[in-house]
């Protein structure tokens, strides 16, 4: 499952439903909701990918939270090579880690005791700080976090993060558009 789905939280969501006796339909639905956040992420990187539609669709498979966030240049474009490279490394270690866990899992002890579950949010926090270069970005981050936290108790897993992406629509205000245009012109020819 790690080798062909390659999306941690969706795998955990579907496996935990199977574990409590839920059906395959419910498990797939939960994983799909969890992965729905890749829709805005893949829409954001889309313009940064080169190649024809098939090639871009293949590259889109490399989109995972960490490499997507790392490759963001902060100006709306993404470093295609960094994203693909980071995902390749993540993929190999993810599959290898799954194999290690499957074979020696009983002997490794409880990963929670080591605090390993705090690594991803802390890493994303670090990446987030690099994005907060304007008052508008800080406002959008606060709005996104608030939306997500409010929705956690009432929406299925995955939906809070998807809905939080709507906070970026603040970018549609006239001033935000004017500043994006200014930045594009300052950089000259678009990449």
């Amino acid at each position: 499952m790690s080798a062909i789905v390659f999306a941690g939280s969706a795998q955990f969501a579907s496996v935990s439903i199977i574990a409590v006796g839920g059906g395959a339909g419910a498990a797939v639905a939960a994983a799909s909701l969890m992965n729905s956040r890749f829709l805005p992420m893949s829409a954001a990187v889309g313009p940064s990918f080169s190649g024809g539609p098939l090639k871009r669709a293949a590259k889109g498979q490399a989109v995972v939270d960490a490499s997507w966030a790392m490759s963001s240049r902060g100006d709306g474009s993404f470093d295609e090579h960094l994203l693909l490279g980071a995902s390749a490394i993540a993929y190999v270690t993810w599959v290898a880690g799954t194999a290690v866990g499957a074979i020696w899992g009983d002997k490794l002890g409880d990963p929670d005791a080591l605090g390993l579950d705090a690594i991803f949010p802390a890493f994303f926090f670090g990446l987030l700080l690099n994005e907060l270069h304007s008052g508008r970005a800080r406002g959008v981050a606060a709005l996104g976090a608030t939306i997500a936290v409010v929705l956690v108790p009432i929406a299925p897993p995955g939906i809070p993060v998807l809905v939080a992406s709507l906070a970026s629509l603040v970018g549609l205000t006239r001033r935000a558009r004017a500043e994006a245009l200014e930045r594009q012109e300052a950089e000259g020819e678009p990449r």
Binding site: S72, G74, L128, R138, G144, A145, A148, P160, A164
Partner: peptide, 8 residues
């Protein structure tokens, strides 16, 4: 990026 990262 800030919206999704903050939500995550």
């Amino acid at each position: 990026s800030p919206a999704l990262l903050a939500a995550l």
